[in-house]
Write a protein that binds this DNA or RNA. Structure first.
Lengths: 353, 353
DNA sequence: CTGAAAGCGCTAACAG
DNA sequence: CTGTTAGCGCTTTCAG
């Protein structure tokens, strides 16, 4: 018992009156430290009565396990990292919200990282956090697949809104969604669509374009792609101009932000929506219902995506590496019809400015 | 050197090939472990040449300090927690974004917690994280001031968009902002305003009401308060009805979300904005520029608030407890004039439904 | 400026 | 089911 007497190295400031440890609890409860440990970490492998005694002692002392000491030996941190490609995009809001809530419910802590659209920052931060978290949620990663596979070899990872062969992922279904989108446009009488593409290294951008092209072929529309564009409102101007130039009457923007920017530019150029052209977006962000005209968009319950991703990650953490499940979940999307789509008028588009 | 031979307790799964430690680096560089430690944590107190040698060895081995081991002895975690009252509110987006970026720049990790408008969850989470983070950013805390003082006695804390005597805080200036708001309404010819209040335990709500009331007195308007309302779009309906009932022509909603909900309800009831009544909000969220009519609102650079809060927190962490600065920073707000405010028409409001 | 040594608080064999 | 014991990887006196 004299063991714990030696002078402690002081923390820099005598700020914190050092809190009770398992030793204090053990002494008070009259058990070994390992028993205290078990009472907290493996409640199954300890006698009911002993456990109660330990818990009492702990409460009386105001004992709380030290997460770092715990992590140091057990290598479990009870922390998850979510790295998003661009925190500026409201779309991620929902994702983050869902993930945070699910993590909290599981008594996990959620660390948030903004990769600022940079694959380098993304990797750097994953690297930096690799010892601090139990697993990663990689949302809309801009990383080449090979790097992701490497990361996944070292840590539990679940991809969000991106699929990589061999890795767990949660996406909102978009192949069928894009089909519906194109079908909707076709049924309105459009014969041509343009996809205003997202970032060049965006898996989603490639994936959506493929789906749109296929659907267009199926419905007998011509489809072209313009861009890539940074999917923000600000870049909607250039995107709109590019769209007009293609002569297509169906404009499919990479996301709602870009679509809203397109809408603005179109209004400035006196191109009527949906009279002259129709515009659709992706994500169904809050603002899509507020802009004018209100935006038709492919939505999906993104909070659920965040939630599901955390759930899968948690399972993955609990499982031995080789038995680790690699589910590819696709949550349903839903085409939300609003006012930015309609039949293209017979009047040719022209610039009234 | 035989020290490190004994069988290591295996991690549950032989997942991770245990990474190099200071021991490995020390051996390779031919120095003591303490020297390796110094090379990373106190670069000043070590010879230039030695340091270089250690760093080389570390690089060759791919060594990365283990944050938990570090935290265990040093009690510094390089992690900050940001707890927001309601992650659902886009307003916090900006705050979070600013905080994340500043934290990342300082090589700190940002943990995100959603208090879901519950003071209990708020406190619970602070408690839970108290050993895992170096300090707290408490955004729009719903906590009684006394509890906050207690928390701040135990950890570095900076309040965001809330002031508590004796605690560090960053807010966007609103007293003057409310004055401008009321002045704007007065100059338009309004003679009465109603404040649609936010949550009962919201400091902001109390603070804004006080400022509005004072400003109204100053400009000779009558001011009444209605509510409290949960400041979401969904609750805008009831808020609008309450506002109409007061007969005031100047409607000041607690935030943009509520204001947008009010706008909707007003449109449904065929109350013209700004013909019959004017509506103003707070925060200048993205959607405020998109709704119709576009919303006049009191904005401010919220990302800067997040950034500033992190900066202050970082300083606070570096300082001994009693010398800890307690700045109360107020960043400028800005009244953004848009289309939801105008002169009240002579036609009495009526329900055309 | 550098090395030796003693822990930080906890978990995980290993016995019993 | 419970106790003993040896570390996890790092920081920090304390000497030199």
């Amino acid at each position: 018992m004299g063991k714990r007497l030696p002078k402690l190295p002081m923390s820099r400031f005598d700020d914190v009156v050092s809190s009770p440890t398992i030793y204090d609890v053990a002494r008070r409860a009259g058990v070994a430290t390992s028993t205290v440990s078990r009472a907290f970490s493996t409640p199954g492998r300890i006698g009911e009565a002993t456990r109660a005694r330990v818990l009492d002692a702990a409460r009386e002392l105001g004992y709380e396990p030290n997460p770092h000491a715990r992590a140091l030996t057990s290598r479990r941190t009870q922390t998850l990292a979510m790295v998003v490609s661009d925190i500026t995009n409201p779309h991620f809001f929902e994702l983050i919200r869902g993930a945070e809530m699910r993590a909290k419910a599981a008594r996990y802590t959620l660390v948030l990282v903004n990769a600022e659209e940079s694959p380098r920052i993304e990797l750097e931060q994953v690297q930096r956090l690799s010892r601090s978290v139990d697993g990663f949620l990689l949302a809309a990663s801009r990383q080449p697949a090979e790097n992701l596979v490497k990361v996944a070899a070292e840590h539990p990872v679940v991809m969000v809104n991106r699929q990589v062969p061999g890795l767990a992922s949660v996406v909102v279904e978009h192949t069928e969604g894009c089909r519906q989108m194109v079908a909707h446009l076709a049924s309105l009488g459009h014969t041509s669509v343009v996809y205003l593409a997202g970032p060049p290294n965006s898996w989603m951008a490639a994936s959506r374009w493929a789906a749109i092209r296929d659907a267009a072929a199926e419905y007998g529309l011509t489809a072209v792609r313009a861009g890539p564009f940074t999917p923000t409102v600000g870049h909607g101007g250039a995107a709109a101009d590019a769209a007009i130039r293609t002569g297509a009457t169906g404009i499919i923007a990479h996301n709602d932000l870009l679509a809203i920017g397109v809408l603005r530019r179109l209004a400035d150029r006196s191109v009527r929506v949906p009279g002259d052209v129709s515009v659709v977006g992706f994500d169904d962000i809050f603002a899509a219902d507020l802009c004018s005209p209100r935006l038709t968009t492919l939505g999906g319950a993104h909070a659920n995506v965040g939630r599901a991703a955390v759930e899968i990650l948690l399972e993955s953490i609990g499982a031995p590496r080789d038995l680790r499940p690699v589910p590819e979940v696709a949550l349903p999307s839903e085409l939300v019809l609003r006012d930015s789509t309609g039949s293209p008028g017979s009047t040719p588009r022209e610039d009234h400015s």
